[in-house]
Every structure is written in C-alpha cells, then in structure tokens.
Design a protein around this nucleic acid. Structure first.
Lengths: 137, 137
DNA sequence: AAAAACAATGCAACAGAAGTGCATTGTTAT
DNA sequence: ATAACAATGCACTTCTGTTGCATTGTTTTT
C-alpha cells in the first residue's frame, strides 16, 4: 500500500493532495492529456498549481511531454523504469485525426535515425498521425 | 523569367506583391521560419495578412508546417515536386538546441514505421533535436 | 514544542501565438 | 464600366504558457 507515496519519495518530491490527485488522474487516462484537460478535471484548483505540478513531474521524470502537432503540449506518465534517456526510453506517439487523442506506443521504439555529418542527435520525437484502433473499427 | 508568377499560376493563387515578397523571403532562408520572423522582416505589413498568406501557401502545398517542439509553428518551402503525400514527401527536421534553428533534411526520408494492428498511419512527423553542423564546429 | 526555513498553493497579471469579423482596397471577369 | 470576388488592414478576442508575490502548509533545527 501507499505505493504512490513511496514512488514520490524515490523521486524526492513532497507528497501533497494535489500531486496525488493529478498523478492518479494521469494513471487512469490511457491517453496523453493537455493542461486544459487537467484544468477541466480539477476546476477548484488553480491553473498555476496544475501547471507547476506538471512541470515538477516533468523535471523529476514522472511524466513526459508530447508534441503531437496539434499546437498544444500534452503529457503522459513515463514508464516505471524510465530514465528519459535517448536510445532507451524513446517511444513513438500516435495521434488520431478523428478522436484527436494521442497515445504512447511504448512497445514501439524509435528506429535508428541517421543525420548528416556535423549534426549531433540528442533527442528524437516521432509522431504518427492517422486513425487509431478505436476509430478505425 | 517570371518563374514565381508562373508557379503561383499553376497553384491557382493570385499573384500579389505581398505573396511574392514572402515567397522570396522563404526561398532565401535556409531554415524554417516562424510567423513572427516574417512579421519582423515585413514590419509595414499587417500581421493578419502575413498569417493568411502563409495559410494560403499551406493549403496550396507551397509551404509545409513544422512543429519542432519549441511551441511555435514554423514554416518552410516545400520541395518543387512536392505533393505533400505520405511515403513520398516526408523528410525529417532537425532542430538545433543551441541556435534554435530548424532545418529540413530533405535528403533524409523517414524510415518505415510500424504501427499496431487497427491503427492506420496517414502522416509521420519526425524531429531530431541536438546540435547542428554550424554550432558543433 | 516553538521557531526558522523552505516548499507548495493561490491570485493577479502579462506576453505571445493564433484566429475571426468587418470594412476597405485591389484585381478579375462580364 | 461595373459587378463580383479576392486580398489587405484594423480591431479585437481567445487560449496557452509563464512569472511575481503574498499566503498557507510542511519540514527541519534548536
């Protein structure tokens, strides 16, 4: 029991009611969420608090940012063993043009990418757009 | 001569002074530009006009949008023979974390990406971040 | 246990990007 | 020439992301 609390402790962040709520919200969702999604889910809470909570989660490698091309940043929980390292934890994201939802395809690691001489790759972001399994059936 | 005018004609858009200027501006640049880059270059012109010009170019497949993760949309000219089709015209983009510039690596087509059963891929966006050839030397 | 130190929260405000409605100017077609 | 339509300019709005500051809450030190 108290697993989230213990997890927060390993990440060296304080356990607060707000953080637990937001963490559980993200864990329940199977899709990446925007800041305004979180705002709608927690209307009593202040926007800034939600914003800073997500930023803290991001710094501590609890969530990762996703830029799916919709113009709004989305967030999703990292995998348990994630260290946010290149070549290890980079998976691709799928954005559905119909339901507008973005999911992490954590099993699909990003293929090796070649860059020209003189360029140094540090991070890779791969977003596939199309129709998701729910919408195509 | 008058090649840009002819090109616009093939795309079925009217030739105006503003459009010629913006097209030449994009052609001169070797990097993707934001709307505010264009605003700075054409201070006498109205923001809305620049905005709508770029939107028109985008619809007519003259420029393509790039989402490099900086949060601001960038634009770059399509290749001459571009039809904005998947598997043909998709190239990768490189964003330099030092100079903050984004370039099209048109010679580097995106590797084949597998998606799970039920998912239909229509478009692929691949952005590599790191240090560009100018900044690494 | 009280006080000091620090982290989290809430409020207000701001900046920038993106977008819309409408009037006006300019261009094309009848 | 004029009617029809497209392009431009102006004003304004919305949304996202962000910061400063005061206040509340939680540790840590004495």
């Amino acid at each position: 029991m108290n697993t989230i609390e213990q997890f927060f402790a390993t990440k060296n962040i304080r356990v607060t009611a707000m953080r637990l709520l937001i963490y559980r919200f993200l864990a329940d969702k199977q899709v990446a969420v925007t800041l305004s999604d979180i705002e709608k889910a927690f209307e009593k809470a202040d926007r800034t608090t939600l914003y800073r909570t997500i930023k803290t989660f991001e710094e501590k490698c609890i969530v990762h940012q996703i830029d799916d091309g919709t113009g709004v940043t989305k967030y999703a929980l990292c995998e348990g063993d994630c260290n946010c390292e290149i070549n290890n934890d980079l998976h691709l994201h799928f954005h559905c043009n119909l339901c507008n939802e973005t999911v992490c395809l954590t099993d699909h690691k990003i293929p090796q990418v070649k860059v020209p001489k003189g360029f140094v790759a540090e991070d890779v972001n791969l977003v596939v757009k199309g129709v998701c399994n729910k919408c195509s059936s």
